[in-house]
């Protein structure tokens, strides 16, 4: 079976399973998976920027902007959710453009540090601007609605999250498979070479960065109406690094890497809820993955298959290559 067709089959199977989940799993799993979907969007939203070779640790700031924009529009002006979500994402993108443009000339770690500084700056603004955001008192947020109907039940919110995630993933996948995606990859692999071939590096980087901000804003907006309580300290450095870690643990060589990373790490803590050792376990898994699976979890099946078929008898075996 050609790999694309096979991947498509599996994709359809997973989606079918996720659609069926509310009929099989309990209320809690619906809730849990909606949260996982948010993390998947966040992880995937960082990928274009990372592909271009930008070490971006700033996505919790753009999530924060999306979340507060959507929440405040809905709460104070009664703006319907579909509009407020779009506004939140757009504002995140506009701010991303404003910060991304002048940061283009920064290289490597300097770029990373500006994004870290930006995360802290946005978090502090959310906490200082009390008349608007209620600061560290936290902001309660109305439930999401769609076409005028309030999505009051967990099941309806779950499907909303699922649809949002699928839309975001399909868009990002199409982009990555387009000419644009190839240019991003070439910039990430050899910026100087790409430049000498006449690629407009600056604009392509900026586009990747801004697009990522937009989708982080989408995740933030849904998060706001799903958790229904916003608290500035939660949009700090820790969340930003988590989003980065999803990408690394999942694997950066494949589109599905961040998805796998986000799903795996989000569900990993579930069996340890009652234990104070949850974080210890979590970080050990993180460390081991980085050390022993440099390509991320996504390369694990390939490696296992490689182990099993180490004798050169099977003709179907292809050595794992970063796709």
């Amino acid at each position: 079976m050609p790999s694309n067709a096979r991947a498509a089959t599996v994709f359809v199977a997973v989606v079918a399973l996720l659609i069926a989940l509310p009929f099989v799993g309990g209320d809690y799993y619906i809730y849990l998976f909606a949260l996982v979907f948010i993390n998947v969007i966040l992880a995937a939203s960082l990928r274009p920027s990372l592909t271009c070779g930008q070490l971006n640790i700033g996505h919790s700031a753009f999530m924060c902007i999306g979340a507060y924009t959507s929440a405040l529009l809905a709460k104070n002006l009664g703006v319907p959710f579909e509009v407020s979500l779009l506004c939140g994402a757009l504002l995140a993108a506009v701010v991303g453009l404003a910060i991304g443009y002048p940061s283009l000339r920064l290289r490597g770690v300097y770029f990373a540090m500006v994004t870290v500084a930006f995360v802290e700056a946005i978090r502090l603004i959310a906490s200082i601007w009390v008349p608007l955001t209620r600061g560290n008192a936290g902001l309660s947020v109305p439930k999401p609605s769609l076409l005028g109907m309030s999505l009051a039940t967990r099941t309806s919110q779950y499907y909303l999250a699922l649809v949002l995630m699928l839309i975001v993933l399909v868009i990002l996948y199409k982009l990555e498979r387009s000419r644009l995606g190839l240019v991003w990859k070439s910039i990430g692999m050899a910026e100087n070479l790409a430049q000498s071939l006449g690629v407009d590096i600056a604009n392509h980087k900026l586009l990747a960065f801004t697009l990522g901000c937009f989708f982080a804003g989408v995740a933030g907006a849904f998060y706001a109406h799903f958790i229904r309580f916003l608290f500035p300290p939660e949009f700090g450095f820790l969340l930003a690094t988590n989003i980065l870690v999803y990408n690394f643990v999942g694997g950066r060589g494949h589109f599905a890497g961040p998805v796998v990373g986000a799903v795996f790490l989000s569900l990993l803590s579930e069996p340890f809820r009652g234990s104070p050792y949850e974080t210890i376990f979590f970080s050990i898994v993180m460390l081991l993955t980085i050390l022993f699976l440099p390509g991320g979890l996504i390369t694990l099946p390939g490696k296992l298959a490689g182990l099993r078929r180490w004798r050169p008898t099977s003709g179907t075996y292809a050595p794992p290559a970063s796709a």
Binding site: L55, G108, Y277, I280
Partner: peptide
């Protein structure tokens, strides 16, 4: 590798902090 090192050091930090409490 700059980026994997960074993530590994982050993981080490989380581990040391979390292990600090017990």
């Amino acid at each position: 590798g700059v980026e994997p090192t960074l993530v590994a050091l982050l993981a080490l930090t989380t581990l040391l902090q979390a292990a600090g409490y017990p």
